[in-house]
Design a protein around this nucleic acid. Structure first.
Lengths: 337, 337
DNA sequence: CCTTGGCGGCGAATCGGTTCGACGAACCAC
DNA sequence: GTGGTTCGTCGAACCGATTCGCCGCCAAGG
């Protein structure tokens, strides 16, 4: 069931079948219908490999994900979903490539076997050798998140620094004088993970600006770590009244530890941060937070990538999103001493 | 940077380069090294499309996922991760295809454009037209979950019926006389979603066998639905003492609602079920549950698929897993009346 | 010295599409 | 009737790999 078979049965040449399908040259309505009839009958679909070989493009996007062995976070998953969704809308397929760990073979296959027309990279480190590698190959790519040097690369990101700073200002406005930052895990900070670093920067800046006492904590990406973190915080700083966080996965644990300690939010303790919407809404009471627009980010990443594939030499573009902070019910005035 | 370029620079023919790379015919160590040197220098990697065209296989697996618009559950994500992981180990790439909704174009591209060597299908409905379509195309495939007619198709699944029945027996052994089933959403049940149906079957059978009073509830796949479900349950049946569930995503809400109502688990109320491990462990108190072995299932699915690709006419194989129920702390003797 | 055989390497065909140049027929204008 | 267009179609080249058949060379055996 190749194009030759179709051509033979329809009594035309292979090129005519091709033109009938692509419309790149006119074909009589009559022959077009005859061809279409044969195609429908045989359920023919052109071979993707042959087409890719001749056209020099694969109609496929590569999506590089963190190694699957470590559980993907909800937010990462959400990016995957939105990228796949956006790609499907553009009639493109998505090839997954776990990178890091011992999976660099997969990454190499994808980026240098011309298996894809472009790549979307997530979970960017401040210094990321994969970015260097992609620049080297010349393959168009867009990152979700950005490296220490933001120029020269297309990316989409959330402005964690500004958002965390806004949260701090919000808490300061409410009269809080001591604020803690519940950051991502110590490993991620050590590895130079951008959001963790930028959250820290924004926090430090805002805290200094407002003359607040600050406490900085790292916390693993799961509920037990969140519990443990709040216990640590209350043990070391019993009179703390507010915290900001970028660690959405720890929220259920944070909530549990606060409840167990008899701390009423927001009467005794205010919490704000950056989190995907459902994490914020599932928190009790609902969390005042900037909702990370994962869907929009994935879609934008695909959009930027398609632009870049179409015009590889156009100047790079960036998208730094600063979604508004949704006031919910987890922040209130500082308790009187 | 194609194979011809390498051949020219190394002073050999294209076929020799190919043989040097594949080792399918002997090549002098000397020329092999000369070729390798050129390859390293130019960072050459064979064009995947050309190879796929000639070889007739793509070294790529298709993974059909539910439409990404509806948030994927944790378990689905876990399958995706484990499939990608297992495929990477076999040096295969994974092409993602959202299906359902208006994404059938993507599905069609993947299954009939010979873009992949085989397909893994998840979120199977009891009557699933995608399975029929795949049978029609003759493309090897394996499903995670199975259809109403389990014969004729390769699949890997968890035996929800047996597991839920075991949970019911466990509760009956503890003296509980009234047991509720907290199933998946009404929509899923209506759509003929296998796990929901089989959980119901197993539940009904066990409850009948032990002569218990049963209550059957459906519940959406998120925390708020879980809360609402427990409230409904306690309003309609205030004296209920035990429940089983296959709805892991509702667990946080279930926990919250029970706490709020002052119900102490397991003193006043026992809960058991089937859930991915971390859901069970995050529950307070930790949930007595059969841990769905998602990693193993994904890996097995890939394994079965590879077998099937190698020998398409071999008899189909099934893998019905019945993981043991881990006794944790959420079940106890029925309270005295 | 001639034959046989194994080894290393080469050339050409092939996979299944797309695309370019060309060609015949029909049509119009002069 | 002839020349120029336009339209629809065809044939052939091409994309970049793999693989089959063949050939030349050198060593071993008769």
């Amino acid at each position: 069931m190749n194009i030759g078979e179709i051509a033979r049965r329809a009594g035309v040449s292979r090129s005519t079948v091709s033109y009938a399908l692509s419309g790149k040259r006119p074909v009589t309505e009559q022959t077009r219908q005859r061809i279409q009839a044969v195609i429908d009958e045989l359920d023919y679909r052109p071979n993707a490999a042959a087409r890719a070989l001749k056209e020099g493009r694969t109609r496929t996007l590569g999506l590089v994900i963190p190694p699957a062995s470590q559980r993907l976070t909800d937010m990462q998953l959400s990016f995957v979903a939105s990228v796949v969704e956006a790609a499907a809308r553009a009639d493109l397929d998505v090839l997954l490539s776990p990178s890091g760990g011992d999976h660099d073979r997969s990454f190499e296959r994808v980026v240098s076997g011309r298996r894809v027309d472009g790549v979307i990279l997530m979970e960017i480190r401040l210094e990321d050798e994969r970015v260097a590698r992609l620049h080297q190959t010349g393959l168009p790519f867009v990152t979700i998140g950005h490296t220490a040097n933001p120029h020269g690369t297309c990316w989409v990101d959330v402005d964690y620094g500004t958002l965390i700073a806004r949260c701090v200002h919000h808490l300061a406005d409410l009269g809080h004088r001591d604020v803690a930052l519940i950051n991502r895990s110590a490993e991620l900070v050590a590895a130079g993970y951008g959001p963790a670093h930028r959250a820290l920067e924004g926090f430090t800046e805002a805290v200094t600006q407002r003359g607040l006492t600050s406490i900085i904590l790292t916390c693993g990406d799961d509920a037990p770590a969140g519990e443990e973190c709040i216990e640590r915080l209350r043990a070391d700083h019993p009179d703390i009244t507010a915290a900001v966080t970028v660690n959405e996965a720890a929220l259920p644990g944070i909530q549990r530890a606060l409840e167990r300690a008899g701390v009423v939010v927001p009467r005794d303790f205010s919490l704000a941060g950056v989190a995907a919407r459902h994490w914020a809404e599932d928190f009790r009471p609902p969390l005042t937070a900037a909702d990370v627009p994962t869907l929009e980010m994935g879609a934008s990443a695909v959009e930027l990538l398609l632009e870049r594939i179409a015009a590889p030499d156009a100047p790079v573009r960036h998208l730094l999103l600063t979604p508004p902070i949704s006031l919910r019910a987890s922040t209130g005035p500082a308790p009187a001493r």
